[in-house]
């Protein structure tokens, strides 16, 4: 049996977290401006930075999904046009609320330059178009990593007071060493190990090729609101040290989730670990394997075999 992902072991914000209710979902454009300003301020020598996460959760209540937004997302990711929200779409809904926590002045890490290294999300009960959604997001578990500092950005979506979806995004602030203590292991090594495990196990497998056009970053930016410059164009990506624009990690993970499709069932866990970024335009070869328990594992690689992402989609029977 597969180990439960963190999205099923976390149960709400840590004790002592103060909940701040926002009047509406904040616009990501403004948040990025604040995030960029914060990131620049963090570079100023001698500026004192906090070394703990703000014990604050942000909440927006009664969020309604726009049907056109959902349809655009589903068409882009290859999801069916169901009224049930795909887990990746729930992530998109919660993302601005989570980002609002990360641009707070008491948040200790620079928003730009943080790397999304892993994600786990659980649909605990189906969430539908038309439901009034209460979205809560917070950060937790700031920890030392060999290459910097890691933390989890957590989000929950509740319907009628019951948590229906939970997502845990793990970020790495490269080269920022805020906290001491035992270093956590590197996600990339487990990605590669997982992928090779699957292939030797002889389970049912499928192969899919994604041919990603140069504008995939802009297209996912439009449906997710995540218009980080590294995804938008080769020029803006170069400013951040990438040779070309890179695909959003969550775009690739959500494509994998859509490929598994209806076989994930109405409630499911979905995990991903990101390795090398996917440069655009680009091609990703993805393999899917499943065993008797109905759990799917997937791994996406470049044509030269370098790992891009790997993860699981596990139906909750």
């Amino acid at each position: 049996m597969t180990v439960l992902p963190p999205s099923r072991t976390v149960t709400g914000p840590p004790p002592g977290t103060r909940v701040e209710t926002l009047p509406s979902v904040p616009g990501l454009g403004g948040l990025y401006v604040r995030g960029a300003a914060g990131s620049a301020a963090a570079q100023i020598p001698g500026r004192t930075t906090a070394t703990t996460l703000p014990a604050v959760a942000h909440r927006v209540e009664g969020v309604r999904v726009d049907p056109g937004h959902l349809t655009s997302y589903q068409h882009l990711l290859g999801e069916t046009g169901s009224d049930a929200l795909p887990s990746g779409f729930c992530h998109v809904l919660a993302f601005p609320v989570a980002t609002a926590v990360m641009v707070r002045t008491d948040f200790p890490l620079p928003l730009l330059g943080m790397v999304h290294v892993a994600n786990a999300a659980s649909v605990l009960r189906p969430v539908h178009l038309g439901d009034a959604l209460d979205v809560t997001a917070w950060t937790q578990d700031l920890r030392a990593h060999r290459r910097g500092t890691q933390l989890d950005v957590c989000a929950e979506i509740a319907v009628d007071g019951e948590v229906a979806w939970r997502g845990i995004s793990t970020y790495l602030a490269k080269g920022v060493h805020l906290v001491g203590g035992a270093e956590s292991s590197d996600a990339e090594s487990s990605v590669t190990a997982d992928a090779s495990d699957q292939e030797s196990s002889g389970e049912v497998g499928a192969s899919v090729v994604w041919r990603l056009s140069a504008d995939v970053g802009r297209a996912y930016g439009a449906v997710s609101g995540d218009r980080n410059p590294i995804h938008m164009s080769a020029l803006s990506a170069k400013a951040f040290g990438f040779p070309r624009a890179i695909a959003h990690g969550m775009y690739t993970a959500a494509r994998a989730l859509a490929d598994v499709g209806a076989r994930r069932g109405p409630t499911y866990d979905w995990t991903v670990e990101f390795a090398k970024p996917v440069l655009l335009p680009g091609r990703v070869d993805v393999t899917y394997t499943t065993g008797a328990d109905g759990a799917w594992t997937y791994a996406g690689r470049s044509s030269s075999g370098r790992p891009h992402l790997a993860g699981t989609v596990i139906p909750n029977a």
């Binding site: 049907p67 056109g68 349809t71 655009s72 068409h75 069916t80 046009g81 169901s82 009224d83």
Partner: peptide
Amino acid sequence: GAYARSSNQDMLTAALD
């Protein structure tokens, strides 16, 4: 109207679902 953005495949899948 309500399905202005929906494709034939979206709608047929919804009916089948």
